[in-house]
Design a protein around this nucleic acid. Structure first.
Length: 239
DNA sequence: GCGACAG
DNA sequence: ATCTTGTCGC
């Protein structure tokens, strides 16, 4: 297993953004047939333990009809890469991929909503696109703050534009952009449908909630450990 | 060089 | 993202 210090040494911002320019060519912005039944939410939180920065990644599966969580997985580990605007995925994929991977084994995930931007990114490859391409699954990015693009009102909605190209939508205080295998229009429609409490859609809202509650129990959680049971997070206690 | 800058 | 008390308002 690769140690955190080695990951830290290997990380190079220039190479990372070069990788994004290469990977953006794999992004598909076309809708998939059928409506998603199970949508996963991905989020991460951080805390400090004995001088080390620990990241906690959570993946929650939400049933679109009932809007209820059907499964939840988490993973905690030391974060090795610093936060650099535009390179968020290189920091968070390490803690969000494990739980999503295990969640996908257990539930049939049709789509995933990630906390961050999709194609509304300087190089068109934000964390939501990164997750979508890596897992070959439709994905949407939902961010609370702008990173790239200019707002422009067209008709009755506000779009995030990259020149003449619509790369996202701004609604109710959040920025919605396609990650992979979905159009701007459908991404906005799905997120709006899932937004029933607060400004975030259920998948991301619940994931964020679980992430913060897990922080209080960090000493009791093993680092580098990934939950493998639906009830291992005591998910029902968080609803 | 200066300003912008997801989580 | 995180560090943090009280406080204004529904």
């Amino acid at each position: 297993m690769m140690h955190c210090s080695q990951v830290k040494e290997r990380f190079n911002a220039t190479r990372a953004s070069r990788a994004q320019k290469l990977l953006r060519g794999m992004v598909k912005l076309e809708d998939q047939p059928g409506e998603p039944r199970i949508v996963a939410g991905l989020d991460a939180a951080y805390t400090r333990i004995r001088g080390k920065s620990i990241g906690i990644g959570v993946a929650v599966a939400i049933d679109v009809d009932s809007l209820k969580p059907v499964s939840c997985k988490w993973y905690a580990a030391e974060v090795c890469v610093p936060y650099i605007p535009g390179l968020l995925a290189f920091r968070e994929m390490r803690i969000m991929a494990p739980p999503l991977s295990i969640l996908a084994e257990e539930a049939s995930i049709d789509m995933v909503i990630v906390d961050g931007h999709g194609i509304a990114h300087p190089r068109g490859f934000g964390i939501a696109s990164h997750v979508g391409v890596a897992f070959r699954i439709p994905s949407i990015g939902v961010a609370k703050k702008r990173l790239h693009g200019e707002l422009r009102k067209i008709g009755d909605r506000i779009y995030l534009m990259d020149g003449d190209k619509p790369i996202g939508v701004y609604t109710n205080g959040i920025y919605i952009s396609p990650g992979h295998m979905v159009t701007v229009e459908r991404a906005a429609r799905i997120v709006e449908r899932l937004r029933v409490r607060g400004k975030l859609p259920e998948p991301t809202r619940v994931a964020d909630m679980v992430t913060k509650r897990l922080k209080r129990r960090i000493p009791g959680l093993g680092l580098g450990e990934c939950s493998t049971e639906a009830r291992s997070t005591g998910l029902l206690d968080y609803i």
